[in-house]
Amino acid sequence: MLVIKDLHAKIDDKEILRGINLEVKPGEVHAIMGPNGSGKSTLSSVLAGNEKFEVSDGHVTFNDKDLLALAPEDRAREGLFLSFQYPVEIPGVSMVNFMRTAVNEHRKYRDEEPHTASEFLKLMREKKKLVEIDSNLTNRSVNEGFSGGEKKKNEIFQMAMLEPKLAILDETDSGLDIDALRVVANGVNKLKSENTSTIVITHYQRLLDHIVPDFVHVLYKGRIVKSAGKELALELEEKGYDWIKKEFED
């Protein structure tokens, strides 16, 4: 599904990703952990196509396509989805209008007719139920005045609407209360299949109790410095990152 080879990226001549290698196969769940500022969000931004970062080296294929050559919108249409760590507020753009435009652009890309108004509303209703999102939220402007938790739920709602092949969840668990965490995790699990993959970026084991990873990677200073099975997350929760940093410095 996704193959990242020796990916380097920088911003303002500051190198943030310093040679990332990662392969994600269909049906797999990968967790990426690592200290603050290690480059986790940068990696997800670069994969989603944020032009703020300059890719200085490396190669990424997504379902055999050269991902880095695609515009952000085409990456999304090819099935890549990023749940943002900090979703932006867009006053004046209604959720309905935003989602209708997005869904229909995906359909157009697949040579499908746009949804009729009633088909679209039906889809909205179904997906709202799936992620237990309040109707009031979808009647408002995109993320405007949403609480931290509501924004995260809204990301998962959008994911449900767009049905991606690969979802990157960047700290989707932060700011969620216990119930919301369960709802979001259930949503993600319901959308999972043997053909879809998930990359979960998180600092906490509690999300990984619900979305069980096949692999856990530690990103540190722009490199993946350790990869193992799900037990690594538990170990990190217990011991912190110092031992890994130490191992790495040595």
């Binding site: 952000p72 919108e73 999304a76 932006v88 867009i90 753009v93 997005a102 890309y109 995109v142």
Partner: peptide
């Protein structure tokens, strides 16, 4: 905001 929209498949 523009990147957010594009990341959802909306063209520029």
């Amino acid at each position: 905001a523009m990147f957010y929209l594009r990341a959802r498949g909306i063209n520029e």
